[in-house]
Design a protein around this nucleic acid. Structure first.
Lengths: 231, 231
DNA sequence: AGATTTACTTGATATTTATCATTCGATGTC
DNA sequence: GACATCGAATGATAAATATCAAGTAAATCT
């Protein structure tokens, strides 16, 4: 089975990824020349924390999991990726190593761009550079929020955040079927798997959500938002 | 008493702040024209979370406290600033608002640079832009570490981190007198003031540190590092 | 179909951490 | 000197959370 394919062109892709819309045609061509696609099976590692950052990647198909490998084999899930999202990381322009791991949740096709080409374009196109600054800083704001959410909220608030994140951002629907495990949800909310299951059960019993296996339904989003804000 | 002074020139300052060493003389002059200094009294607010990000600042004298104002009036201290450190924040190139507050710990002189001028220089000087990318991403890596340290370590590990941070980074000495309160140390380690005091007491009784009021001394750095790593 | 693995769930328990109330000690004020 | 104030420290208690152990259900393999 071939894992190396190349059936897409950047001109199509650039319409989806908003950061690339600021490139000239020549620059898009240049990116296209320094790019390749790879297919991943579920569970396979796309980026490995500590490894060399040689490429930036975009998910063109499937879901990915971005997580920090922490202490005592515990992971912290930073976010769940969907098409068409870019994966960069704070190693770029810096130590050129990955500071988180990314793995495929289901069948994934990812498009890899050589980091040298990416940076070259950023250096010659000011508008693109500014959008890149913006993108990086938006991630920074998210991480500040994550820092507060995970250190100052207790478990119900953190699970409410996870439910709202999955519903609003990842699956974009009040009814969704997760393709991640309970452990992943726990790692997203920085708690033990058992605690996550228990809080989900509480939410179910309070009529905030329904949950049968991997099928979730948000019944009372306002209440969840209130729990999220209260902590 | 005048709070507005202007007795320094960027040419001197730029030698200290490594990110500015990549500017041309003309660019340093341009920054100098778009810059002013302000004196702050202890406790005064330098940047206010939520406020407009109109300037980037550099501490030229005194200590500052960078903190996120979180939930239920709880703060999370991100770091303690010393001269000569720059304060930017993820609002730049983004929504141009401050995402943390900064206050003066003791008498502070801060140098403010108009953010438009700062960005203009970043847009015309690629080397400077790349250093700025690097600086922002280094902050990003720190925040990842903070995320792991605060969510996966328990209190002794977090206090060990705080002690090592104060000793190695802030006061750069194994013997140091803090100018921050116990509440600040607690906010640095994301726990209650009482818990922070208790762990410090334990460290004292175990012979890892001495602590009389605000005077600290690191006695066994290796043991602290071990506690920090173990969590 | 039976066996085996794996993820999920639940209950009991122990540990970690926060909260509340109080005291202590230093500092400053009248 | 008496008195208020503020940060620090301590003890008692309650709440939050993790761990451990066991059981269930679903999926996979032979």
């Amino acid at each position: 089975m071939p894992t190396y394919i190349n059936n897409a062109i950047c001109q199509n892709c650039s319409k989806k990824l908003n950061i690339f819309q600021f490139l000239t045609n020549e620059e898009v061509d240049y990116i296209n020349e320094n790019r390749h696609e790879v297919k991943f099976n579920p569970g396979e590692t796309i980026f490995k924390q500590g490894g060399a950052l040689t490429h930036v990647a975009c998910l063109t198909s499937g879901y990915g999991k971005v997580y920090i490998e922490g202490i005592h084999k515990k992971n912290l899930v930073l976010n769940i990726l969907r098409p068409t999202e870019m994966i960069g990381g704070p190693g770029m322009f810096n130590d050129f190593r990955h500071h988180y791991s990314v793995s495929a949740i289901d069948d994934v096709i990812a498009c890899f761009i050589k980091v040298e080409a990416f940076m070259e374009v950023a250096n010659q196109n000011t508008v693109f550079a500014n959008e890149l600054f913006k993108w990086i800083n938006q991630k920074g704001v998210r991480n500040f929020e994550k820092l507060i959410n995970l250190t100052q909220k207790q478990m119900p608030g953190r699970i409410a955040d996870a439910m709202l994140y999955l519903s609003n951002v990842v699956y974009e629907n009040d009814v969704f079927t997760v393709n991640i495990s309970r452990q992943d949800i726990a790692d997203l909310a920085a708690m033990s798997k058992e605690s996550a299951i228990r809080i989900i059960k509480e939410f179910k019993e309070s009529g905030l959500i329904t949950c049968e296996g991997n099928d979730f339904k948000i019944l009372d989003k306002e209440a969840l938002q209130k729990i999220s804000q209260t902590g």
